[in-house]
Design a protein around this nucleic acid. Structure first.
Length: 464
DNA sequence: GGAACTCGCCAC
DNA sequence: AAACGTGGCGAGTTCC
């Protein structure tokens, strides 16, 4: 299968031409690395990893493993671990990989309830931080600066990508991993790091394609909140308090376990499983004491009271919600998906709003997602080009140092901080809408900034 | 001895 | 019928 994507307009060609020049400037600038910190951290991590490995090797689990194969197993080999668990010990697989082997990823191992494996998992996590990230930074550093490549020619959807090292997958959600890795990335002396990212960019760009009135209202009216509404519907909450911790978790569950997967083309069964996991509900019969606490009552108890008595009942419930989501809440969006898919099937290609044509064999989810992902990235790229020109024209000392799909990362010269914030705000929320007339919803830009001589680990949101 | 593959996991 | 979109990277493993 070959998918050809090409600019079909002068404007689209210019975007790539100018885009790669601006990204080349970011590459040449690079990002400073605290080499001394990296060396210290590597030593600390190595000590912790060695300790965890020691602990693991003392367990009877490990000894049985070693005995079974008559030599030292490689404890980091998924194949060897899978063989021991599923072929020697005959433990029932909870899930399989694509090729049919028993899965041994974190989720699969957790579900086996073997405490010894927790030690192995913790060692693996630390090893990844040390070898994948810190070692990668140090390997790529030249005079204390890394110069990641930012590519525009590798992604099917015409997004960008980054490598050597990959600047776009540095840990952010896991607190420990975030802290250790991002502390290594620092601004130039006397400067500060800043990241400007579009809020819910893909949702907004999708709305430019389907023009669903309900979705546009969610975007335009800041007192509404799609994820909150879905959390209430999914978990049958009669009220919602955004300061309530449990409600916050259920909102995140709705967002990451239902709304986004549905937008990417997922369906109710995996959604129900993911939602149950968020709420810590088992995939079987429920009793009153299952799930997270939602204010004096367990989630399972609450749902049982609402008539959902088991995981199976919950699956049916989510199936109903899925139907309601597309048939009643976002019917225009749903019709656009069908129209778009039918048109693609007739002619074997489609064009993005930014003037790029995709030709080739695609499944339904691909054909629907590519134009959104591509056009959203092009909004970021146009903004980056325009900001770069602003920096050059005004002879500023601030530099763009990278791009992460819907965000721009900068090394800020502190006296220029407000000038840059104002420029980015103007470019992303006004000039961009003037350049791309098809953008029919407002766009939103958020800023995070670090301390002067701080690191990328301690970024704070700024009110704009 | 290296290419190509699998698996797992990090980001948006 | 099908069923989550896009990448990069490291380590282990298999194939030539």
């Amino acid at each position: 299968m070959v998918i050809r994507v090409e600019p079909n307009s002068k404007q689209a060609y210019n975007l790539l031409h100018k885009g790669i020049l601006s990204l080349a400037r970011a590459e040449r600038q690079g990002i400073c690395i605290d080499m001394k910190y990296c060396e210290r951290q590597q030593k600390t991590l190595s000590r912790k990893i060695a300790w965890a490995e020691d602990q693991f090797r003392k367990t009877s689990f490990y000894k049985d493993w070693k005995t079974s194969i008559r030599h030292e197993p490689n404890i980091y080999s998924p194949q060897q671990l899978g063989k021991f668990l599923y072929e020697v010990k005959h433990i029932r697989q909870t899930r399989q990989t694509k090729s049919g082997a028993g899965a041994v990823d974190e989720e699969a191992l957790e579900s086996l309830n073997i405490p010894e494996l927790q030690i192995l998992l913790s060692a693996k996590k630390l090893k990844k931080i040390r070898d994948n990230y810190l070692a990668g930074f140090m390997r790529e550093a030249v005079n204390g600066v890394i110069h990641p490549s930012f590519n525009l020619h590798l992604v099917k959807t015409f997004r960008g990508s980054a490598n050597n090292p990959n600047f776009q997958n540095i840990p952010k959600r896991d607190k420990q991993a975030k802290l250790i890795t991002r502390k290594a990335l620092i601004p130039r002396e006397g400067h500060q790091l800043m990241e400007a990212d579009f809020g819910s960019l893909e949702v907004r760009i999708a709305a430019c394609y389907h023009q669903d009135t309900t979705m546009i209202k969610y975007i335009k009216d800041e007192s509404t909140d799609m994820h909150r509404d879905m959390a209430q519907q999914i978990f049958k909450l009669s009220n919602f308090d955004k300061h309530n911790r449990a409600h916050g978790i259920l909102r995140t569950a709705a967002k990451n376990g239902f709304v986004f997967p549905q937008f990417y083309g997922d369906y109710y069964l995996p959604c129900a499983k993911s939602l149950a996991k968020w709420g810590q509900l088992p995939e079987g019969r429920w009793n009153k004491h299952d799930g997270i606490d939602i204010g004096g009552i367990k989630l399972s108890d609450h749902l049982i009271n609402q008539g959902i008595k088991s995981f199976n009942g919950f699956v049916n419930h989510i199936q109903d919600i899925e139907a309601d989501f597309w048939e009643n809440r976002f019917p225009v969006y749903a019709r656009w998906k069908e129209r778009w898919w039918n048109a693609y099937q007739r002619i074997g290609q489609f064009s993005m709003l930014t003037g790029f044509t995709c030709v080739g064999e695609m499944g339904k989810n691909n054909a629907i997602n590519y134009p959104v992902q591509g056009a959203a990235f092009h909004c970021l790229l146009w903004s980056l080009i325009t900001l770069d020109k602003f920096i050059i024209d005004n002879e500023l000392q601030t530099r763009i140092i990278g791009q992460i799909h819907d965000s721009i990362v900068l090394d800020i010269y502190p006296p220029e901080r407000q000038i840059i914030i104002d420029a980015i705000t103007d470019i992303t929320t006004r000039q961009l809408l003037n350049e791309f007339k098809w953008i029919i919803v407002p766009l939103k830009i958020d800023f995070e900034i670090g301390e002067i001589d701080g690191s990328w680990a301690d970024m704070k949101e700024i009110e704009n």
